[in-house]
Amino acid sequence: MKAVLDPLAHIPGVRLAALISVDGVPIATAEATREGETASMIDQDEELNSYTALAAGWLADVTRSCSQLSWDSPLRAVLQATHGTLVLHNAPGAIVLAVLERGVPYEELRVPIEGAIGRMQRLLRRSVPEPPAPLPSQAEVAPAAPVVREEARKGSQA
């Protein structure tokens, strides 16, 4: 999962990229590390947990506010503030979170985030075994053919 987020974290201006569950539990995180940068945005695991929980909580609150108008849950929510921007993108069963530095245009992150979601879904599809087909395949039907031919041969001998 980390490989899914790494390209996102390497975009200039992205401080943190994370995949979190709907209730805010971090699944995978990738933080920007570039030359000259050593300090981490979030040092402790606990801090990361509370950060993602707060972000997911905000999305839940906003969804609740929107439900007054019978609106569905927002697919994408952006909170732009003086010190940075928080971008949350709803993926099936999870949320992609990105924190951007101040002044970085969040619109530029739309395609990379959608790309990350696509990569994640491909990865999940590959790890799940294919379900059995509703009808038997040709390979399963094939052994029946020689039997028919034998019966036909017996009939002709008689």
């Binding site: 972000a55 905000w58 609150d61 906003v62 927002p74 909170l79 732009q80 503030a81 003086t82």
Partner: peptide, 28 residues
């Protein structure tokens, strides 16, 4: 009003500073 109130509180808690803009996108 609710969206602004909750966003302001969240931005402060996440150390993002003052809220400047909120954008929600969905089927609506």
């Amino acid at each position: 009003r609710d969206v602004v109130q909750t966003s302001r509180a969240t931005a402060r808690r996440l150390a993002l500073g003052n809220t400047m803009k909120i954008e929600l996108e969905g089927a609506f």
